[in-house]
Design a protein around this nucleic acid. Structure first.
Lengths: 225, 225
DNA sequence: TGACGCAATAATGAATTCATAATTCAATCG
DNA sequence: CGATTGAATTATGAATTCATTATTGCGTCA
């Protein structure tokens, strides 16, 4: 007797879908760099597929903003700019603010405890000056709050936008004062989450992102003068 | 002598790009209906193109959420559900709230005057019971505020999400009390915009959308029982 | 030496073909 | 008559080919 196993479909994702993820990964990891032509032929050789699914994947990535399609010249990896940050951060702030509000209503107690644990670990990383570890935990806290919001559309839209400015994540070499302030903001965020105060949580998350943009302005604005 | 006209490039958009827009239009207009298979062959005949750009367009539309790709069965127009509304409306509310805040800072006086004019026209439509006209003007007010925010990314993300629930726009056959309340909310929104009070404007826009979702719950919840 | 023109080569966009999966239809069996 | 099976037909996903555009390299000229 065969039982239908919904967890294991007998079909595999279309090549175009897989390639979209793979190529997006190459861009996010920096292997395909901003401003560079996407080497369509090299990708076919690398992944052992025909040009068709590669081209389909590039159309999707263009719609997501990862690449620009230039007529008769192919695809170019999109170049992030400070101007883009100025546009994207308010969007991220709005989405994370909304996520915070929803998370305050919907998070399970275990999820809140996990966010507290992550925050404590982030404090430890701060004290030992371990920036990479701090950033990693920072990401996990934001991701946990987004997950606790239980709104897949919100999460998806957030990911779509946030991934495009991932490159900026490590550009703000945090000055000591800003680093301490960011930590304090996280503390206030966690406290609001634990108290399940959605409106306050949403507001705090929004302003946290706004402060981050200001720090980035300082860091990147200085570099470009 | 030939002058370079940047408004008229000598290349035309790729077929795939055009077809993406055309097919999205067919979906939004209801010609391709939710749950229906996308007739790939019929589209090639209709538009006089090969299958390749049609398939590329469908990949993009799948990434945007307009269709679902079912392996070996092709694309099916996505079916909106009440559950989707519950997810999407908080996202729209967050984005419109953010747009309101930015618009309060960035709108030109002429733009604010135009929003006031649209609001006045909407009052007239209300008094004469002209619902289609009312809805049209309603849309124009929201669009004007989004434009005044001067954030293309925000606008794009909003469009991406809002278009997917366009079908719900006319489903809430407004009860008299809710209709009056909606109008009052618009008045408060315009007043905040004119006073350039960003935070209040953002909050009002958010709650306006939240009330709209509640009305839709009533309207659609009733239908599905 | 730099500019120009032309041919060859490579890249791009789209059409067509091929291989596979799904669906439909007809015949057979219980 | 309903269920099953197998063949024929259709649809789908991907590979290949074709037509067009862009780029490169080379020769010629001022």
């Amino acid at each position: 007797m065969f039982a239908v196993d919904p967890q294991r479909p007998l079909t595999r994702p279309a090549l175009a879908v897989e390639l979209t993820d793979l190529i997006r990964g190459l861009i996010l990891e920096g292997e395909l760099r901003p401003g560079e032509k996407v080497p369509e032929k090299a990708l076919t050789l690398r992944f052992g597929v025909s040009r068709t699914p590669v081209r389909e994947a590039l159309k999707v990535l263009a719609a997501e903003g990862y690449v620009r399609l230039v007529p008769n010249r192919g695809a170019v990896v999109a170049e992030p700019t400070l101007a883009e940050l100025e546009e994207v951060f308010p969007v991220i702030a709005a989405l994370e603010g909304a996520a915070g509000e929803l998370a305050a209503e919907r998070a399970g107690d275990a999820e809140i405890a996990e966010v507290r644990r992550l925050n404590d670990a982030m404090h430890a990383a701060y004290r030992s000056g371990d920036r990479p570890r701090y950033f990693e935990l920072n990401q996990q806290i934001h991701a946990a709050i987004l997950a606790a919001a239980r709104n897949p559309t919100l999460r998806q839209q957030h990911k779509l936008v946030a991934d495009r400015v991932r490159w900026a994540r490590y550009q703000a070499n945090l000055a000591a004062a800003r680093w301490q302030a960011a930590l304090d903001e996280h503390d206030a965020i966690i406290a609001a989450l634990e108290a399940r105060e959605g409106e306050r949580l949403g507001r705090l998350m929004k302003s946290h992102l706004e402060h981050k943009l200001e720090a980035l302005r300082g860091a990147l604005g200085g570099e470009e003068r």
